[in-house]
Design a protein around this nucleic acid. Structure first.
Length: 486
DNA sequence: ATGTCC
């Protein structure tokens, strides 16, 4: 097992495991973090990220973001760009079981003062309208053929059904729908699991929060104004969820299929079964890519239905129209995905399959993939913190090129769920937080204990690390006042 | 993360 002194410090925030660290590494591995973060980091990350560095086609480095920690095969926080024209592979473990787990941020014209008297009603209504917890079913019922349309049309399907605004799509990564999704490549079992899951939150670290912008937490006033986050004590809504059991089943199906052919058919030797992969251009690789895109689209649709519920609840409780409430989306960004992107490598343009697992895309200004409204300033990045400590809106930078424009996605756990359950009591934590002005509704007290702020890294330190490294710049920090969770 | 083991 590696120790801190096996890392070579490249800069204040970049720590490298050279190829000599482990036999078979095709590229060095780079972990991002302040010294404090690196010292506290679980050393299993070194082992996992150096395994990733052994995968065929990996380009330049295997990266781990400052919020990185142990995951299935790849660490959470892992970034790996595979050159698909040079034997690059696609690996479900580099994307995550929760395909297109991501963040969505919505602003309002409301102040904390206006919301405070209605906070409990708002949270209670949201908790009812947006089902949370393992195995929860949504209020929206769709047929199997409609679900297949969702797989192909993503959030656009929702907007066509009246579940959102046209502008929501522009403010969603990929316009809320990624091309190339093929429902024929997903199992009936996956459809069974996904059918009733549109508009549901899930469990674990999935949540929806009402948050406030305090003036002292505006780090870039010009950009804050640009995003329309310059009203006094302004209220926003942020949520974190993914493709639920549907994406989980897609990942499970293809992990099994890859394991069958990986060695026998493609001769791929990997260091860990959890790194199961297939050549991107193989039939299996292409099938998974097309199936994964169904889950990407289902997840964009899931978050779109949730946004619609949020608007309905706010309009109902406050007795005002959503337009009047200014409930415009700022952005929706995935942090569990793999996407084909053009990147400069040693002065040449290459097509890379960028795996981001618990890592957020963070394009700098000018990228053609960005919607017109954001192309000049760069991509909004949403980093969600724990229910106690707050979350961030950041912006992508030109320096992000060093990680193929990737940054952190959250705080990152510092301890297991089991350990957190021993240290905190859900019931007691709920009352403590209510005294501090944070009202929480959860389906399980156990879940509350597991998500205690103390079980997570210091999000300010994570954001500082991305800022110092040049991966993303903080714009605004949000403080939670209400939270619903699984 | 996940119908937390078909």
């Amino acid at each position: 097992m590696a120790t801190l002194n096996q890392l070579e410090r490249v800069t204040e925030t970049i720590w490298e495991l050279p190829r000599s660290f482990k036999a078979g590494m095709r590229v060095p591995a780079r972990i991002y973090g302040t010294e404090k973060i690196i010292r506290a980091m679980d050393e299993t990350v070194y082992d996992q990220i150096s395994n990733v560095a052994c995968l065929p086609g990996i380009t330049q480095y295997a990266f781990c973001m400052p919020d990185g920690h142990f995951g299935y095969g790849f660490p959470i926080g892992g970034v790996a760009a595979m050159d698909v024209d040079n034997d690059g592979v696609i690996s479900p473990g580099g994307i995550g079981f929760d395909i297109n787990c991501g963040m969505r941020l919505i602003k309002t014209h409301l102040s904390y003062k206006e919301v405070k008297p209605h906070l409990k009603t708002l949270v209670d209504r949201l908790f009812k309208q947006i089902p949370a917890g393992v195995g929860s079913s949504g209020l929206l019922k769709v047929s199997r053929s409609e679900f297949r349309q969702v797989c192909q049309q993503g959030a656009r399907w929702c907007v066509q059904q009246g579940l959102g605004w046209e502008e929501d799509l522009e403010r969603t990564e990929e316009g809320g729908v990624i091309g190339g999704a093929e429902p024929a490549k997903i199992s009936e079992r996956a459809i069974d699991r996904g059918l009733n899951q549109l508009g549901t939150l899930g469990s674990g670290n999935h949540y929806l929060e009402i948050q406030v912008v305090h003036p002292e937490n505006i780090y870039d006033p010009t950009l804050a104004r640009f995003f329309g986050l310059d009203l006094p004590e302004q209220v926003v809504i942020m949520f974190h969820c993914g493709s639920r059991g549907f994406g989980h089943q897609v990942a499970t199906d293809y992990l099994q299929r890859f394991l069958k052919v990986m060695t026998s058919k493609y001769g791929l030797e990997i260091r860990d079964r959890e790194l199961a992969c297939a050549p991107f251009h193989s039939p299996e690789g292409q099938d998974y890519f097309a199936a994964m895109k169904c889950a990407l689209n289902m997840s964009f649709a899931n978050r779109q239905v949730i946004l619609h519920r949020v608007r309905e609840v706010f309009a109902e409780v406050l007795g005002r129209s959503t337009e009047d409430l200014g409930m415009h989306m700022i952005y929706d960004v995935a942090h569990n995905t793999a996407k084909l992107e053009p990147h400069q490598v040693n002065g040449k343009q290459r097509t890379l399959l960028v795996h981001r697992k618990g890592a957020t895309r963070a394009f700098g200004p000018g990228r053609s993939e960005l919607p017109e409204i954001y192309r000049q300033v760069g991509q909004p990045v949403i980093i969600g913190g724990s229910m106690e400590t707050g979350s961030y809106l950041l912006i992508g930078t030109p320096d992000g090129a060093q990680t193929f424009f990737s940054t952190a996605h959250g705080s990152g756990r510092t301890m297991s769920r089991r350990k957190a359950r021993k240290q905190w009591q859900g019931e007691a934590l709920l009352s403590q937080l209510e005294e501090r002005g944070i009202y929480i509704r959860s389906v399980s007290k156990r879940g509350v204990a597991e998500e205690a702020g103390g079980a997570y890294k210091d999000i300010d330190e994570v954001v500082t690390a991305t800022d110092l490294a040049g991966l993303s710049k903080p714009v605004v920090r949000f403080i939670p006042i209400g939270n619903i969770k699984g």
